[in-house]
């Protein structure tokens, strides 16, 4: 059984092409993360699956039905990024309201417990903290005991600790064959929760696979150092690098094997100062993955200020 199905979906907002042709199948029981930087089209894609947005072209099906169909929606729980609830109602009043929307809801106590909001059950929403509000939206998403939950950037506004327990709770809920679709721009969040990661960038699916597969493509270390002379590409010939960026005496290398690289560089007798080896951030990882060429990187301007000697290799 397919939960959601997108076929050649495009979406235009005026001059902006938010989705440029997305094909996606989400089978039942999938734990899927849509991963991508801000503005990649993740929220638009989820909005399509929920019938909140109509595609400019292509088709979207939810449980084989039009996403606006109430029978399809009755099987989905939703946590949206930009949405609200009546601030004067209390947590338990809202959970009970949302329970009534669904044919076979879970008990209010259970929904509140899953979100870890028992102490706040009687509190009006207006008095909740940012993280507590996020958990309230989660409680509302699970209140209908849905087969699938869509979570759009669910951990925004949460501190590290509550983010961890929150992801744990989602994992538990997903346990019995439920489908989870979440969007995030944190690779580690996707890695922790998902069995499948779909990387979206600039309205296109650029990678689709298991977390290990995606990590092998994007995760890496960034080796940065200065030398005592101007560097050239020839200095890095044959090294296991994913991306190389040279500006004068400074080199920035994205790689899975920083040790190999350093060993080789020392052997070649290159002077190395100010060395740092750190985890590549997601922005770099995406650049490696999405093959934005030099021209495009230049176009995007501020994102890559020193893209003078930007090169992509080993892809």
């Amino acid at each position: 059984m397919t939960v959601a199905e997108l076929r050649g979906v495009t979406k235009r907002f005026g001059p902006v092409e938010a989705l440029k042709g997305i094909d996606l199948d989400i089978p039942e029981g999938e734990l899927l993360a849509l991963l991508g930087p801000n503005g990649a089209g993740k929220t638009t894609a989820i909005g399509m699956m929920l019938g909140l947005r109509r595609p400019s072209s292509g088709t979207v099906k939810l449980f084989g039905l039009d996403p606006g169909d109430r029978r399809a929606r009755s099987r989905c729980g939703v946590m949206l990024q930009e949405s609200g609830v009546n601030q004067t109602l209390s947590v338990s009043e809202l959970v009970n309201l949302f329970r009534a929307y669904y044919p076979n809801p879970m008990s209010a106590d259970r929904a509140i417990a899953l979100a870890g909001l028992e102490p706040e059950a009687k509190k009006p929403v207006a008095k909740l903290s940012g993280g507590q509000k996020q958990r309230l939206y989660y409680a509302l998403a699970v209140a209908g005991d849905p087969e699938v939950i869509f979570l759009d950037e669910p951990t925004v506004g949460m501190d590290v600790e509550s983010r961890r327990t929150f992801l744990e709770s989602i994992k538990n809920f997903a346990g019995n064959g439920r489908t989870i679709v979440l969007t995030t721009h944190y690779l580690d969040e996707a890695d922790e929760l998902a069995r499948r990661i779909v990387v979206v960038d600039r309205g296109l699916v650029v990678a689709d696979g298991t977390p290990d597969f995606i990590k092998s493509k994007v995760a890496g270390r960034r080796v940065t150092f200065d030398s005592d002379r101007a560097l050239t590409e020839a200095d890095f010939e044959g090294l296991p690098r994913k991306r190389l960026e040279i500006s004068g005496q400074r080199a920035k290398i994205l790689t899975d094997q920083p040790e190999e690289i350093l060993r080789a560089l020392f052997q070649r007798g290159l002077a190395i100062k100010n060395l740092s080896v750190v985890g590549a951030d997601l922005e770099e990882a995406f650049l490696a993955l999405t093959a934005h060429d030099k021209a495009k990187a230049g176009e995007s301007g501020a994102a890559e200020p020193d893209s003078s000697a930007l090169e992509e290799v080993n892809r």
């Binding site: 039009d66 606006g68 029978r71 099987r75 009534a100 669904y102």
Partner: peptide
Amino acid sequence: MSTRVVTRPSGMSVAPMSRMLGASLKA
């Protein structure tokens, strides 16, 4: 809202309207 039937998997149903209306009034 569309009521067009595309497929009809078993167990698909919706909450009774009276319950939705009642809960909305209560809220």
